[in-house]
Amino acid sequence: MSNISDVIEAYLKNIIQSNNKNAIEIKRSEIADRFECVPSQINYVINTRFTIERGYVVESKRGGGGYIRIIRITNEDKAKLIDEVIEMIQPTVSQQAAIDILERMLEEELITKREAKLMVSAISRNTLAFHLPVRDEIRSRIMTAMLTTLKY
């Protein structure tokens, strides 16, 4: 059984995909009411599941008429997307950010599930048994090498 965060994430992604605009505007309180949870749960989902690494931009306006806008970043040119990701991960990248990026690339069908698993294994903190910040620098270099190879 999925937890509430997974359910909320799937619901929001489904709305984004179904409206063909790659963007939605939501009211935090309305979504919280729909899922019978506290509004901070919606904040958690948005802050952890709709990040730039995962291919989303989030805008918000506070106040009575406030909203949260979630925009899916689309990129028709896959080589350009890889270049943008490489720029994003240099000179360092955390394990979570790297995994988020790989999930995005899997969703965009730039890599297969098998390739994603291999890449996660290569960049995990268990494999890269170095102290920070060296570990994040090495992870960045490994990911850059793998992504560059995917481009060609």
Rank of each mutant, 00 (worst) to 15 (best):
K21P: 02
E36G: 09
Q17A: 13
R34S: 08
I46S: 00
K27R: 14
S18K: 14
K21N: 12
I15R: 15
A23H: 08
D33F: 00
N43Y: 01
R28W: 02
E30L: 12
I15H: 10
Q41M: 13
V45S: 05
K27W: 03
R34P: 01
S18L: 14
K21R: 12
S40D: 13
I24Q: 00
V45F: 03
I24F: 00
E25H: 06
I16P: 03
F35T: 06
I46Y: 00
E25V: 06
I24N: 00
N47E: 15
C37Y: 09
P39T: 01
C37S: 14
N43E: 08
F35V: 07
A23L: 12
S29A: 11
E25T: 07
I46F: 00
A32Y: 04
E25W: 05
P39Q: 02
A32I: 11
A32R: 03
E25S: 07
V38Y: 13
R34V: 03
N47T: 13
N20M: 11
A32M: 12
Q17M: 06
I15G: 03
C37V: 15
I42G: 10
E36R: 09
R28H: 02
I46N: 00
N20G: 08
I24L: 01
I42N: 10
C37K: 13
Q41C: 07
N43L: 07
P39M: 02
Q41T: 15
A32E: 09
Y44A: 13
Q41H: 12
Q17F: 06
N47W: 01
P39H: 01
A32F: 13
R28S: 03
E30P: 02
A32D: 08
I42W: 04
N19Y: 08
I26M: 04
I15Q: 13
V45E: 05
I42Q: 09
C37T: 15
I16L: 05
P39A: 03
N22F: 06
E30S: 11
I31A: 06
I24K: 00
S29G: 03
R28V: 08
I26G: 05
S29F: 06
A23C: 11
R34M: 14
S40L: 12
N19D: 10
F35I: 07
F35P: 04
K27P: 05
N47G: 07
E36D: 06
V38H: 15
E30D: 11
Q17W: 09
N19H: 10
D33W: 00
N47S: 14
N20I: 09
